[in-house]
Simulated scan of single mutants.
Amino acid sequence: MATIKDIAKKSNVSTATVSRVLNNDDSITVLEETRQRILLAAKELGYQTIHERRKQQSESQKNNPSIGIISCQTVEEELNDPYFISIRQGIEEELNKQGINKVGSYRLNDMLTVPHDLLKMDGLLIIGRLGEDVLKQVTKHIMNIVYINYVPDEELYDSVTIDFEKSTKKALQHFIGLGYKRIGYIGGVEREHLKQQKVISEDKRLTTFENMIKNGEFEGSEDIYIGEYTMSHGYELMKKAIKKKNVPKAFFVASDPMAIGALRALQEAGLSVPSDVALVAFDDIEAARFSSPPLSTVKVYTKEMGQTGVKLLMDRMNGRKLPVKVTIPTSLVIRQSCGSSITKQPFKEVIQ
């Protein structure tokens, strides 16, 4: 790279004169012809001032920032439920679309301390629930943060989420519209992971279910089964419900993998879906279309959630100060497992 000494030699002036001219020193008196000769020499040699280099570096950083992705789920949880994998795929696709290749991936339960390189990121995308202790460490260093599938403080942080309460009511009201008076619930637990500890958090699907029972919309307080968000736990929990006899004629299952497991347990017990027991699930993963029978389920647009998170982060890094919360809508996809017919639908749904 050219130096001030090179420019001085080419323009036949002192290095001090070159330095003061290139840095726009108004106190120096120099002939215009000499000034232009220095500037021309600098241009021909490809010299950049400190100001120009900083500006170029800033623009480069703006065009290709370093982005961190924190997954608040364990590897096992992701493998058991494609919901969060799909969100991450949406993030990665959008980052690639925008030409951003400086990406770091982190998993919360692996952090004994916050990694030093994470704190150097220009922006951060957090999938799930991040504890307050980690959040405080991160926000001291990173101002541009977007949460996906969780809203910690909408007055401080950008977030992308769905309305779990509204989505759950949509499924349960569909059952009510079909005439079911008693509905069972199979679900898992929401957790925060940190330093090998697991803190159970509120699951809006369960609390919405319980509140609707309290409001007298249907019966089911004795038909709630909670385990882990896995296919095997859906299977075991439905077997537990079957052993109690007098199985509810309808079940809301809080994830598709759990519903697929529950479906297997019903079939092994000789119960037909939907004629003996109807099912509505949650997520609409690809396997829901290919189960037997195909699952009716609340469709969550997970990939779009990830893509929207990246767009919010880029907007924030481009200067927006006001926090934005985006709630992605869901839709109820009607297939065979709920025993619905088009003429019985209480509101608009997606028929497949």
Rank of each mutant, 00 (worst) to 15 (best):
279 L>S: 04
230 T>E: 03
164 F>H: 12
81 D>H: 11
276 D>F: 09
174 H>L: 07
77 E>P: 06
247 V>N: 03
216 G>H: 10
57 Q>N: 13
144 N>M: 08
70 I>K: 10
17 T>E: 04
316 R>E: 08
211 N>M: 14
190 E>P: 00
48 Q>E: 10
283 D>M: 05
280 V>K: 04
80 N>F: 03
351 I>P: 00
232 S>G: 02
253 V>Y: 07
120 K>L: 09
145 I>E: 04
24 N>R: 14
219 E>W: 03
20 R>E: 05
55 K>Y: 08
141 H>W: 02
273 V>N: 08
171 A>E: 02
82 P>S: 12
324 V>A: 03
163 D>M: 06
145 I>D: 10
109 N>A: 12
10 K>L: 15
105 S>M: 10
28 I>A: 09
192 E>Y: 02
244 K>L: 05
76 E>V: 07
234 G>S: 07
14 S>H: 12
21 V>A: 05
101 N>M: 06
193 H>A: 04
344 K>H: 05
245 K>A: 13
296 S>E: 09
239 K>W: 00
49 T>Y: 09
319 G>Y: 03
71 S>C: 11
222 E>T: 10
265 A>M: 09
124 L>T: 11
13 V>W: 04
82 P>I: 02
254 A>L: 07
186 I>E: 08
299 K>E: 15
90 G>K: 12
274 P>A: 09
70 I>E: 08
222 E>I: 01
105 S>D: 00
78 E>R: 14
9 K>R: 14
136 K>E: 14
3 T>C: 06
21 V>Y: 10
264 R>A: 13
304 E>V: 10
278 A>S: 15
266 L>M: 14
101 N>I: 04
260 I>F: 08
71 S>W: 01
60 S>L: 15
263 L>N: 03
110 D>I: 00
284 D>G: 02
71 S>N: 14
5 K>H: 02
114 V>I: 15
68 G>D: 05
331 S>V: 08
175 F>G: 05
303 K>L: 04
242 I>Y: 03
319 G>E: 03
14 S>A: 09
97 K>P: 00
303 K>V: 11
147 Y>I: 04
169 K>W: 01
74 T>S: 15
338 C>N: 13
236 E>P: 00
184 G>D: 05
145 I>S: 01
269 A>P: 07
